[in-house]
Design a protein around this nucleic acid. Structure first.
Lengths: 194, 194
DNA sequence: CGCGGGTTTGATGATGCTCAAGCCCGGTGG
DNA sequence: CCACCGGGCTTGAGCATCATCAAACCCGCG
């Protein structure tokens, strides 16, 4: 499991890791498997740990008054999973995060992240990189959410995250796009006529 | 102008700055004033610099095929202004950024940011803090954009960023919320009947 | 006074939601 | 081997929300 994390690190930085640093890293991350539908985080809990998703697929969502799930994020291999606001501010989360497929995670506490990991230059760079990509992705999502139609947003998704379509059912994709499954179904029907 | 930047830094970190570090900071940031409607960045340009907004109000937006502006971000005092994607990837921006009120900026290049500023511990912490708040804000915006009605989004805005209502005209606020000025006008009318 | 930017109002229409029903398909048990 | 079940997907009818377009209004300013 750890080898994948190290590959990920090497992919996102040119800086090398010393043996000692590798040691620290393996100590900070705790392996955990969770099964489909199991929760990583529930509303009201504090997100004490962040997770590197080694294998599997996960969802982050809120549940509204009528009990409908609103998907706010989807995660696949090599993504970081957690609720940043809860983690940083140490406050109860508004979100649920659960496994959509059986998943393998590497958990790390906020303290270890800050005190032991962030001081390692290679890790610091990887975290910066991650932050950058994360911020860019969110910015683009905000931008398309407020300015594009359902149809346009769907085709952006097809372009940017085609894997999602393979791994998650349509009603989940629909919710992620902020539309209903019926609307998505009609959009796909229309799109397939080309 | 610089005093405000130092106040901002002190507000977001407990770490002290040495005289030498303060010196480096003042050297890296270049003061610039821009007048209402002047551009900080135009579509197609590369965002070489980031800016700390000392005074004034700014807007970031795209322009669609019909020539309509879609506001994606609004900035006030003590915010960081720039297009991260363009800045980091060194690629042409999709956005315009201009001044809505006459503004005073402190400009910093990406190289200085990385090479001279980031190594200063206090600055590193401030940048991390900034990233955190930024990511949290974006996440919340995505979440409300996909799951709330126009009316609900407006009341979130009133709650979270009441200053915006004082500083920007309604048609700008409407666009920021992803609705038309007419819809916003009607929402406000309805809301005022309470 | 008249102009211009911003806001409001009304009429109309498109987009996407809700609710209800039916379909498809893989899995389970008789 | 078939009947049935359940989850997911599709389809249709009616409706709510919000966009569009056009006109009027408001108000500060030359």
């Amino acid at each position: 499991m750890y080898s994948q994390l190290f590959q990920y690190i090497q992919k996102h930085t040119a800086l090398p890791l010393t043996i000692a640093e590798e040691e620290v890293i393996t100590q900070c991350f705790v392996a955990k498997k969770i099964r489909k539908h199991q929760f990583f985080l529930q509303e009201g809990e504090i997100c004490k740990q962040y997770a590197f998703l080694v294998k599997g697929a996960m969802r982050q969502y809120t549940v509204d008054d009528k009990g409908t799930e609103r998907i706010v994020n989807l995660f696949l291999e090599d993504w970081w999973v957690g609720d940043r606001e809860s983690n940083i501010k140490n406050k109860p989360s508004n979100y649920y995060i659960d496994a959509w497929e059986n998943a393998e995670l590497l958990l790390v506490s906020r303290e270890d992240m800050l005190n032991k990991l962030a001081p390692i230059p290679a890790i610091a760079e990887v975290l910066r990189e991650m932050d950058n990509r994360h911020a860019i992705a969110l910015q683009n999502r905000v931008s398309s959410a407020i300015s594009l139609s359902a149809e346009q947003r769907y085709s952006e998704l097809v372009k940017n995250y085609p894997e999602f379509l393979q791994r998650f059912p349509q009603h989940t994709i629909a919710s992620y796009l902020g539309i209903t499954k019926e609307t998505l179904s009609r959009i796909r029907k229309k799109a397939s006529k080309n």
